[in-house]
């Protein structure tokens, strides 16, 4: 695991300059900001009301009125893609939040304490990793009821060991450093050191991993919705839109193309963003790309 440089020691201007010279970062950043903006905009305005079904307008091809066409209920696909972004982001973001909220403290604790505590945390990690994630998420949502909340929990659980592992590895690399040793010698307790020195230094690592898990979360939500276990109507969701599109692939391909593209572009953007951040902060990056 290569550890990023300490952000705190680098001048912000240089960092920004380096960021905007990085192609992956720029593309990823633009895509991510656009998707988020689209989702935010959908709270105030969408071209059409996505909760109103107009059966008479069903499966219309893309036109000036309906840029992305309409679905089998006559809803505007552009509007649904916009509101669907809200759903995907919310589910994936909260799932990342769960993963970080539980995983990072566990990982930091394991690194700070070591010994049997470390062993327990790592074994719990192994345990969660042993379960096939998607299958288990399907099992959880199917048994405890389909819906956004259970989807978040099902995806979030599998984010926990990822963050625990990353933060533990990051923290373990920080602990032997001189300034930490100095702080320990000065009598600061482990919790304080973790909060003051370790966390800020692994923050970028977590940011990179967070972006990746965010992207994976969007894919996982799409998969769950596709099998009918994610968010329920009337809330539009990209995965369910694809499910509804598949019986009409030959007569209304736009029903499949636009939500599909929305997923691909969003995930692509987030992955590029993650790569970009890693590149910018990784001293080895200049050698690699």
């Amino acid at each position: 695991m290569t550890l990023p440089v300490d952000v705190s020691r680098e001048k912000p201007e240089r960092l920004v300059a380096r960021a905007f010279a990085n192609r992956s970062f720029v593309i990823g950043f633009v895509i991510a900001v656009s998707v988020v903006a689209m989702a935010l905009l959908s709270f105030f305005w969408t071209p059409f009301d996505v909760t109103k079904l107009v059966i008479a307008d069903k499966t219309q091809a893309p036109s000036l009125t309906h840029w992305f066409g309409t679905d089998h209920f006559g809803r505007d696909i552009l509007s649904m893609v916009m509101v669907g972004a809200r759903n995907s982001i919310a589910v994936a973001l909260v799932a990342v939040g769960i993963g970080m909220g539980i995983g990072v403290p566990l990982g930091c604790l394991a690194a700070a304490r070591g010994g049997w505590l470390d062993e327990i945390v790592m074994r719990l990690n192994d345990l969660v990793f042993a379960f096939p994630a998607l299958l288990s998420a399907i099992m959880i949502t199917a048994i405890f009821g389909p819906g956004a909340v259970n989807a978040i929990i099902a995806i979030g659980i599998f984010n926990i060991p990822v963050f625990a592992r990353v933060s533990r590895a990051g923290a373990l690399a920080i602990w032997p450093r001189e300034y930490i040793l100095a702080a320990r010698a000065a009598g600061k307790n482990r919790t304080l050191i973790t909060l003051e020195h370790v966390l800020p230094n692994i923050a970028t690592l977590l940011l990179v991993q967070g972006t990746i898990q965010f992207a994976l979360g969007i894919l996982a939500e799409a998969s769950l919705s596709y099998v009918g276990l994610g968010s329920q109507p009337p809330m539009p969701s990209w995965g369910r839109m694809l499910f509804e599109a598949q019986t009409r692939m030959a007569i209304a391909p736009w029903m499949a193309i636009f939500p599909g593209m929305a997923i691909v572009v969003t995930v692509l953007g987030l992955n590029l963003l993650g790569d970009g951040i890693a590149d910018i902060l990784d001293p080895k990056s200049r050698r690699r790309s």
């Binding site: 909760t51 079904l53 209920f73 009821g145 389909p146 109507p233 009337p234």
Partner: peptide
């Protein structure tokens, strides 16, 4: 049908939660 009916009942103020 459930999705359509939920949308129609919303017009008269009945808010249905769909549970598959």
């Amino acid at each position: 049908g459930g999705e359509i009916i939920a949308s129609q009942l919303r017009e008269v103020g009945i808010d249905l939660e769909i549970i598959p």
